[in-house]
Design a protein around this nucleic acid. Structure first.
Length: 150
DNA sequence: GCCAACGTTGGC
DNA sequence: GCCAACGTTGGC
């Protein structure tokens, strides 16, 4: 079993929204590295740290899990969608998604500022300068440490 | 295939 | 709202 961190802007889709909907197709990922993680490495049952980005207090706010294998992201074919990609063909979809299932909301936000202070997390992709991945791997050690901060 | 211009992400 | 970082695009 692997672990992941997935970013979402709370104004777009928050942990509360996921709690309400129970699960959500993670559409709109348009970054090849993130897509490759979803396509090649994510398995049903993998753990997910749900992260709020681009907001007042960025940080890990909940736990989720992968509940589907990767499949083509339908928004890439929808001209009305923000995520439309005219260059992607149905016979050969460029973008994939996985479905993310709600597990629980943390009692408090484990903030980015806190994570940055932990020497053990020095190499964690999230806190490395300039990182813009919206989906990234988390090691077992990193997962355990982050969870323990709750 | 290089690289400048441009767009996006996301913390602050 | 600013801006650093970085991915993508497109002219050459």
């Amino acid at each position: 079993m692997r672990y992941w961190l997935m970013k979402s802007e709370p104004e777009e889709f928050s942990i509360d929204a996921l709690a309400k909907k129970k699960k959500e197709p993670w559409n709109g990922v348009r970054n090849y590295q993130a897509r490759n993680f979803m396509r090649d490495d994510m398995k049903v049952g993998d753990g997910v740290l749900f992260y709020h980005s681009n907001c007042e207090v960025p940080g890990v706010v909940g736990l989720a899990e992968i509940v589907s294998d990767a499949y083509p992201d339908p928004t890439q074919f929808d001209p009305k969608s923000d995520y439309y990609d005219a260059g992607s063909k149905r016979e050969e979809p460029r973008w994939l998604l996985v479905e993310v299932g709600y597990k629980r909301t943390l009692k408090r936000t484990i903030t980015l500022a806190e994570l940055k202070e932990k020497p053990e997390l020095e190499d964690f992709a999230l806190v490395r300068k300039g990182n813009r991945l919206s989906v990234m791997p988390v090691s077992k050690n990193e997962w355990d440490l982050i969870i323990s901060l709750e």
